[in-house]
């Protein structure tokens, strides 16, 4: 199973920005190990949540057809720890979108207080380097639906995002194999 590091998108504007939330639960396995006896949300997993949001923000502009990787965390500051029972509100802004990648600025707030901030650089991996897709379409679409991307996402005109046809086709084919 793929790791999910946000619970749900709250807003998503194509090629511009996105917000999401993640609730901190003591049930998450990693909570027990970071500081034994003092459970906190591991800050690197907060940054992984930013990376998932930023990756989706960039990839969505290209219908998720390119292989994109988190290349670098340029800058990050952990201002406090998130404790069980708290709700983290993530915001990601696309600073630069280029043919070979992009740059995003991300923040997490808890009750209005700055929790984590980071800049993330993404790079597109050439098909000459890795000749396969990082995400198989059915699993990708499932993840996007779990995150609620198509519930809240809008395109550059403010219209609801549409699921790319090739993802729907892949899903239909996979479902047809079972039913």
């Amino acid at each position: 199973m793929r790791w999910f590091w946000i619970d749900k998108f709250k807003s998503f504007e194509r090629g511009r920005c996105a917000t999401a939330v993640k609730a901190v639960s003591i049930c998450e396995e990693h909570m027990q190990g970071y500081f034994p006896g003092y459970p906190v949300m591991t800050p690197t997993f907060v940054i992984e949540g930013f990376a998932q949001m930023g990756g989706i923000l960039i990839s969505e502009t290209r219908e998720f057809r390119q292989n994109l990787v988190l290349a670098k965390v340029s800058r990050s500051k952990i201002h406090r720890y998130a404790r069980p029972g708290e709700l983290m509100s993530y915001a990601v802004n696309l600073v630069s979108l280029q043919e070979d990648g992009g740059l995003v600025e991300a923040t997490s707030h808890i009750d209005g207080e700055l929790h984590v901030e980071a800049d993330l650089t993404f790079a597109q991996v050439s098909r000459d380097v890795i000749d396969r897709k990082f995400f198989e379409p059915v699993g990708l679409l499932q993840m996007l639906r779990v995150y609620g991307l198509y519930d809240v996402g809008v395109d550059e005109n403010g219209d609801p995002l549409k699921i790319p046809e090739y993802l729907l086709e892949a899903e239909k084919t996979a479902t047809g194999a079972y039913f």
Binding site: A71, K72, V95, S96, Q98, D100, T121
Partner: peptide, 20 residues
Amino acid sequence: IDFLDIVFRLEKAFNIEIPR
């Protein structure tokens, strides 16, 4: 990898295209 980051920032800051 920093050069990619730098290039993204410069392209944005100056509104230019930088052929790699």
